[in-house]
Simulated scan of single mutants.
Amino acid sequence: MPSSEQPKTYSISDLAKEFDITTRTIRFYEDKGLLAPERRGQTRIYTPADRTTLKLILRGKRLGLSLEESRDIIGMYSPGQSNEEQLKTLIDRIRGRKETLQQQLHDIEVMMLDLQESEQRCNDALRELGVSGD
């Protein structure tokens, strides 16, 4: 008996469950042109490539990339090629994100010091008035 094995496909609910996201989120990515499943009537049929794209979109989101940045990077992929440009672009985006986060961390540390100093001054002023602020 010849094997006419069909490639694995996924429903929208399969992917939503696997990645712990809502079907609405997946439809949002479709509306943005990031995913384009086949349709059989009203049913969406996702391929393994669609699943991989969704996985990359979600990874980009976790890294703090915008959807546009994720789209650009995913669009650079060429099967069977070195994908050097894609990898270098991703590294640049990662480095930029790290720089932004380092600056935000510094800003938070400075703000925490300012808040601690302000709180201490207020407590000192209350003590001078004979009132406990703690």
Rank of each mutant, 00 (worst) to 15 (best):
Y10W: 15
Y10I: 08
Y10F: 15
S11H: 04
S11L: 14
I12W: 07
I12F: 06
D14R: 09
L15D: 13
L15Y: 12
A16L: 14
A16T: 11
K17D: 12
E18T: 06
E18C: 04
F19M: 13
D20W: 12
D20L: 12
D20K: 14
I21C: 10
T23V: 13
I26S: 09
I26L: 13
R27S: 09
F28V: 09
F28K: 07
F28R: 03
Y29V: 01
Y29A: 01
E30N: 02
E30D: 08
E30I: 05
E30K: 01
D31Y: 01
D31Q: 06
K32P: 02
G33Y: 14
L34Y: 11
L34P: 03
L35Y: 00
L35M: 12
A36F: 12
P37C: 11
P37G: 04
P37S: 04
E38V: 07
R39G: 05
R40W: 08
R40P: 02
G41W: 03
G41H: 06
Q42Y: 11
Q42G: 07
R44A: 03
R44G: 09
I45N: 04
Y46H: 01
T47Y: 14
T47I: 08
P48M: 10
D50P: 06
T52K: 15
T52N: 13
T53L: 15
L54H: 04
L54R: 09
L54W: 15
L56E: 10
I57Q: 01
L58T: 06
L58N: 07
R59V: 11
R59H: 15
R59Q: 11
K61V: 03
R62K: 10
R62V: 04
L63A: 12
G64W: 00
L65T: 02
S66D: 05
L67G: 10
E68G: 02
E69Y: 10
S70L: 11
S70P: 13
S70H: 14
S70V: 15
R71V: 01
I73G: 05
I74E: 03
I74A: 02
G75N: 04
G75H: 06
G75S: 07
M76V: 02
M76A: 01
Y77T: 05
S78G: 03
P79I: 06
G80F: 11
Q81P: 05
S82W: 09
S82Y: 03
S82I: 07
N83D: 14
N83R: 05
E84L: 15
Q86I: 06
L87W: 08
K88R: 14
K88D: 13
K88T: 06
T89G: 05
I91C: 00
D92Y: 00
I94P: 00
G96I: 00
G96Y: 00
R97T: 02
R97I: 00
K98I: 06
K98A: 03
E99I: 00
T100Q: 08
L101V: 02
L101T: 05
L101P: 01
Q102H: 10
Q102P: 00
Q102R: 07
Q104C: 03
Q104V: 09
Q104W: 01
H106N: 12
D107N: 11
D107G: 12
D107I: 13
I108Y: 10
V110R: 05
M112Y: 03
M112R: 07
M112P: 01
M112L: 14
L113I: 12
L113H: 12
L115R: 04
Q116W: 03
Q116M: 05
S118C: 05
S118L: 11
S118H: 13
E119P: 01
E119L: 03
